[in-house]
């Protein structure tokens, strides 16, 4: 899975969580919690879906470093090798 594929899947997850938004229009370095009005419940759902799609269980202690599309894609790429 290359980072483009990862990005596509991340966008799909975000679209399910924030159906009225278009995540692909986001700046890769924009804080998505603010841009998409993601609350803690949405965030948990996001990581649950990430776990389902990628098989990666993101520990809570890593949440803080995962605020933008590029941070998320980078984090997942590193772990998917």
């Amino acid at each position: 899975m290359n980072s483009d594929d990862i990005r596509t899947v991340v966008f799909e997850i975000l679209r399910r969580i924030a159906p009225e938004s278009d995540p692909s229009a986001l700046d890769p370095n924009e804080n998505i919690r603010q841009a998409l009005d993601i609350d803690s419940f949405d965030a948990l759902n996001f990581f649950v879906r990430v776990n389902e799609q990628f098989g990666i269980s993101v520990p809570e202690s890593d949440y803080g470093g995962l605020n933008t599309v590029s941070e998320i894609v980078g984090y997942l790429s590193a772990r998917l090798g």
């Binding site: 803690s40 948990l44 990581f47 649950v48 269980s57 809570e60 202690s61």
Partner: peptide, 17 residues
């Protein structure tokens, strides 16, 4: 809560609220 969530699968994590 952090300790508790650490040993739980993500689906069973508890939000601070």
């Amino acid at each position: 809560l952090a300790a508790e969530n650490l040993r739980r699968p993500i689906q069973e994590r508890i939000l601070p609220v």
